[in-house]
Nucleic acid binder design. Sequence first.
DNA 1: TTATTTTGACTGAATTGTCAATCAGAATGT
DNA 2: ACATTCTGATTGACAATTCAGTCAAAATAA
Lengths: 228, 228
Amino acid sequence: MNVDAATSRTIPPDADPDAPKRVPRKQSREARRQQLIEATIAVLAERGYARTTLTEVARHAGLSHGLVIFHFQSKERLLEETLLFLSEEYRENWAAALAAAPDAPAAQLDALLRADFMPPICAPDRLAAWCGFWGEAQSRPMYQDKCSVNDDDYNAVIEGICARLVRDGGYAADPVLAARVLRVTVEGVWQDMMTMTEPYSADEGLRTVMACAQAFFPDHFTLAGLRR
Amino acid sequence: MNVDAATSRTIPPDADPDAPKRVPRKQSREARRQQLIEATIAVLAERGYARTTLTEVARHAGLSHGLVIFHFQSKERLLEETLLFLSEEYRENWAAALAAAPDAPAAQLDALLRADFMPPICAPDRLAAWCGFWGEAQSRPMYQDKCSVNDDDYNAVIEGICARLVRDGGYAADPVLAARVLRVTVEGVWQDMMTMTEPYSADEGLRTVMACAQAFFPDHFTLAGLRR
DNA sequence: TTATTTTGACTGAATTGTCAATCAGAATGT
DNA sequence: ACATTCTGATTGACAATTCAGTCAAAATAA
């Protein structure tokens, strides 16, 4: 679902190993789809969900709007696949951060929270596109369906980490509530960065989240993150 | 800007006391506008921002769509005034709660947080309409303009309360960050209640917010709210 | 009557989706 | 190397629909 994967597909499985770089068509099917999804994200960020049109997406990609339908059948499907891509990208980002972190619950939580403030997740167009979808998700069950699995997984992970941290660290807080507060704080800070008249930086956003972690787990966190 | 205010306006200050019910035109005008704004909120909640049409708003109010234009000149203006109404309603609600609370900072914070979970603010259609606007606000400077004053005031108030609470209560936290976390937690809980596959109740939402307050100000708050 | 509100038909613009024609490159043949 | 065929990506014109906004006429109240 990422660009590299699409690029690698341009070389057929039975390709001659010494054949250098086969650049098949003007663009391969997967690469075009990915290009159009990126264009959709950009238009969502620039104009908002309600004013996102196929023509604008196509124009942004330098292609005809007929091609968008050719690749995605309908506007609905294009938006679905865009949301799915963002959802997967987000999931892969935090999952990778988690896998790279030490096993101690505080270190895991630190990695999980930091992951949301790293590129490519914390890029302006990504955040803006997310906000656009959030606004529509409530009235479109399909959008909830597309993301609920990833959302539930994230929830389960952060709740599990908080439960371990509460137990091992001797805290009294309810881990479910603590996990929920941390999650919505990240989301809220993102939204601040998109909608406030004078938004703060991603650094300040992360500091805010760490202040929240410190409030719940003062022995393990400071404003700068994991206490060491 | 609320219904009662509009209704009270129906009786002019110089009205004859024994004249039973004068139903002046201008009042009818305000009542219609209010009716259409309520219909707009309902449609926003039901179909989302992108699929909100004048025809649907009019149908919901049992009126013709030409009348919507007659009263609001354009769809843009209708949505602006709807947002303005919601913003004022929200502001009046927390301002009233604050005025009714004791002057102690912990009591003020408790009142401020509870206010967001009381009707009419915490009604499903209100929350859903807010979410719809949030999604579009990023790409529409006009929406930010309309609300920024009220938003900034809320921010200043909750920061001030947190600053007093930190000082008087001997806490070490940064009051600006604590205030920000509390604010985005309320917003995030609202969004949860709108978009989650199996949302929790307003009570559970308030408990979550109080868990956050407890984390920052454990001497003054419990899961049930203000410690007494 | 006069002023205001309300309707509903109409217009013009925007937008999604269709489709036949075109075109670029790959495969195949010579 | 060169020409021919084939495939499927790409275009752009077109149809159908939806929707915001206009307006003349009707209804209603003063």
